[in-house]
Design a protein around this nucleic acid. Structure first.
Length: 401
DNA sequence: TCTGGGGTCCTAGGACCC
DNA sequence: TCTGGGGTCCTAGGACCC
């Protein structure tokens, strides 16, 4: 069997790095990017991490601290990050034959053709090219499979001597290193499984790979077992270069404040439907089913959450057609004596838009007019949003020489 | 005042059929 | 009417990822 060489290219502190390309003032200063509604921290610069800011920490709890330490704070700007991501990926693609975009800031690459002795040089070239042309720093880890590529890139980040790139084949005594790495660092082992493993005395990667197949299979399903075998060097999880067709498309948001007025919810839902449909149309898809939901503010102990699925007669991506069927259900879900913090829609049973099923009995739909504009209490808070530097003409930075 | 959003996969259990 | 086993399909829930 020819062994594979798989790499993971990972943008460092991606959202922060994107902001810094256009706001160099934040370079060197502790910097964070906030989730929608400026709710919690979802990206941190190294300086912010060093000051103890945690991933997912509520912003309002740290605001004062951040003011004191002269933080740069940004609302998330997904137009910018999405476009910067596309640019990073296309530079990487120039260097490899096979690339899987795994998330907005990560891609797996197949580098099986590169000799082990040449690997580090090869990785440095990619890293420098992305930095030079796009301005985004990346880390790269390479190993015999995805799980080990991820673990190797973790090792690279822990130790600055690696200068952001690390090859499994340059590491000595890998299996011994496993005893020094927390099992929770492994890709595929999350909080719950880590806790379960700890409870039987398994704390390190080394101990995990020595756990029995039976226990892992029973407690962590086939996925946990696959992770163990990848840590042992097997190749179980192939690179997927053609993007998988989506199975679900969701559009949901928390409101800027609690809302108890049906017209507000209806307007928000209408906007989210349009939002979701835009994503569906971009992929040339249509939906046969949609699930709408409304829910209370869980941080105020409100646990109410109501949802309802609607199956359409035929797959569609027509806003009015969907609204006509969703609106009456939304009306029924809404309870007058409750307040709500979030609503949304998940489209499922997606099919390519050119495959039209002929419907024999098309019942006529009672169209429902779109909601009229309200004062938009539901709109999300974005106090620190930057411009669409790369995707909107008016926002393109000017350069004075 | 203020606590994100969008995905995938696997499994157990219920419904239903023969 | 009662009784049993096995197969398939669907869904909700739970785990994971970023």
């Amino acid at each position: 069997m020819i062994s594979k060489k798989i790499g993971i290219v990972d943008c460092n502190n991606f959202y922060v790095s994107c902001e810094r390309v256009f706001n160099p003032v934040s370079t060197g200063r502790p910097t964070v990017v906030l989730s929608n509604n400026d709710g919690c921290v979802i990206a941190r610069s190294q300086e912010a991490k060093d000051l103890g800011i945690k991933m997912g920490e509520p912003f309002f709890q740290k605001k004062e601290f951040m003011d004191e330490h002269r933080f740069c704070v940004y609302s998330s700007n997904y137009n910018l990050y999405g476009d910067m991501s596309d640019r990073v990926m296309s530079v990487i693609r120039e260097h490899v034959s096979s690339l899987e975009i795994y998330s907005i800031d990560e891609s797996f690459i197949d580098v099986s053709h590169v000799e082990e002795k040449d690997m580090m040089d090869f990785l440095h070239i990619i890293r420098e090219d992305v930095k030079k042309r796009i301005g985004i720093p990346v880390s790269i880890g390479v190993g015999p499979n995805k799980t080990l590529a991820k673990l190797t890139s973790h090792i690279a980040k822990q130790n600055s001597n690696y200068k952001g790139v690390c090859s499994f084949w340059d590491l000595e005594e890998v299996r011994n290193m496993y005893y020094g790495i927390d099992v929770g660092e492994v890709w595929g082992i999350g909080r719950k499984w880590k806790k379960k493993l700890n409870s039987i005395g398994v704390d390190s990667v080394g101990q995990f790979v020595n756990s029995t197949d039976g226990w892992i299979r029973k407690n962590m399903s086939i996925l946990g077992l696959r992770t163990k075998y990848e840590l042992l060097g097997h190749y179980c999880n192939p690179i997927v270069t053609t993007p998988k067709t989506k199975k679900n498309v969701a559009s949901a948001r928390s409101f800027g404040q609690d809302v108890d007025d049906f017209s507000q919810i209806a307007e928000a839902m209408y906007v989210y439907i349009q939002n979701g449909l835009r994503k569906i149309k971009d992929d040339s898809l249509e939906a046969k089913k949609a699930t709408i939901f409304v829910s209370g503010n869980k941080h105020k102990g409100q646990t109410h959450s109501y949802y309802k699925s609607v199956s359409f007669q035929k797959a569609t991506c027509d806003t009015e057609e969907i609204w006509a069927q969703v609106y009456p259900e939304l009306r029924k879900l809404f309870k007058k004596d409750k307040s709500y913090k979030k609503c949304g829609i998940v489209f499922s049973e997606l099919t390519p838009s050119n495959q039209h099923q002929i419907t024999l009995f098309q019942s006529s739909l009672q169209m429902v007019s779109p909601p009229s504009n309200t004062e938009k209490k539901w709109e999300m808070k974005q106090e620190f949003i930057t411009k669409k530097y790369t995707t909107k003409w008016e926002d393109i930075p000017e350069c004075f020489v």
